[in-house]
């Protein structure tokens, strides 16, 4: 027997990278977030071997949920194969032994940056959205302590005013992605920089959505079957992106969220942003989608425009 033989093996890294203390803290905070839909829960936010701002908030949530039997889908801008999505998927599966898929309906956990899949998610699935800035009022109040007081007072006057000013100046609301929403009639929330096309998908959804900002150290949730409404004026309804007439060059599909790809002659080609859905359309039978082929949202009357 030598000293080297006697020494215990030092394997260095925990299951799913984070140590148990970190996971327990995240889990405690996730439960509070679910109990307070749309409310930003502060959390410690561990450093991961991925740069801050590259999805470390979402990644921490995923790592606190994931187990070896999970099937994980990771997307960035709707694509499974974009470099950041590929890298995060490689990391998650490497540290957890979970399987991965590009099929939104087969995944148990979907981590996403900037998109919600076109196919309707179902009960039991968890959508983890990466959040660069959790504060919907950042543009009108940069002091986060003051913004927190405004949330406490449900004082969203400045935000309404900002939307109103856009109307006066441009005759329409010019907010693009990250369209602010009211959750369970209490908290205004940033849905993360998803396009307005995806915003309605959070309303009365069957799945659980967890949103996390690693750098800003806040996480929040939209439980299943919860009211989520975009801020809109009675006479100026909320509008999704107008992509009518755009046809996906790969599938011929219409009325799904498209990427616009510039051509050299100044025109544009269009392609669906959700690559998992493209794959399914080409090779299999896709499930129900949030918007039908005519662009109607599945909950009738929710989008008024």
């Amino acid at each position: 027997m030598t000293l080297e033989q006697l020494a215990l093996e030092n394997h260095g890294y925990s299951y799913a990278f984070l140590d148990e203390f970190a996971k327990r803290e995240l889990r405690r905070r996730i439960l509070k977030a679910i109990a307070l839909p749309g409310y930003q829960v502060p959390y410690a936010s561990r450093e991961l071997p991925i740069a801050r701002g590259w999805g470390t908030g979402g990644l921490q949530v995923t790592l606190s949920l994931v187990g070896p039997e999970d099937v994980v889908k990771v997307i960035d801008q709707g694509a499974d194969d974009s470099v950041n999505a590929a890298n995060l998927r490689r990391f998650i599966t490497r540290v957890s032994d979970a399987a991965s898929t590009t099929d939104a309906t087969q995944a148990t956990i979907i981590q996403s940056r900037h998109r919600i899949p076109e196919e309707r998610l179902h009960e039991g699935q968890v959508l983890v959205l990466q959040v660069p800035d959790p504060e919907p009022m950042r543009s009108v109040e940069h002091d986060i302590s003051r913004a927190r007081e405004m949330h406490a007072d449900a004082d969203y006057g400045l935000l309404w005013l900002a939307l109103y000013e856009q109307l006066v100046r441009y005759r329409r609301v010019t907010q693009g992605a990250s369209y602010p929403v009211m959750v369970h009639k209490r908290y205004v929330m940033s849905p993360s920089p998803i396009p307005r096309w995806d915003t309605p998908k959070l309303h009365q959804a069957a799945h659980l959505t967890l949103l996390a900002a690693g750098r800003e150290k806040r996480l929040y949730a939209v439980p299943p079957y919860t009211d989520v409404y975009p801020l809109e004026f009675t006479d100026v309804p909320f509008k999704v992106e107008d992509q009518r007439g755009w046809v996906c060059i790969r599938t011929g599909a219409q009325n799904k969220f498209m990427n616009e790809i510039p051509n050299e002659d100044g025109t544009s080609t269009h392609e669906m942003s959700d690559t998992g859905y493209i794959e399914k359309l080409l090779n299999a039978q896709p499930g129900d989608t949030y918007y039908d082929n005519n662009g109607n949202f599945y909950i009738r009357g929710y989008i008024r425009s």
């Binding site: 027997m1 030598t2 000293l3 006697l6 020494a7 215990l8 030092n10 260095g12």
Partner: peptide, 22 residues
Amino acid sequence: VKALAESLLDDLGVIEVLENRT
């Protein structure tokens, strides 16, 4: 220190390593 400990091993009998980590 390792050399010293190595030289003690024979006299220490059965050793149970309870914890050994960074």
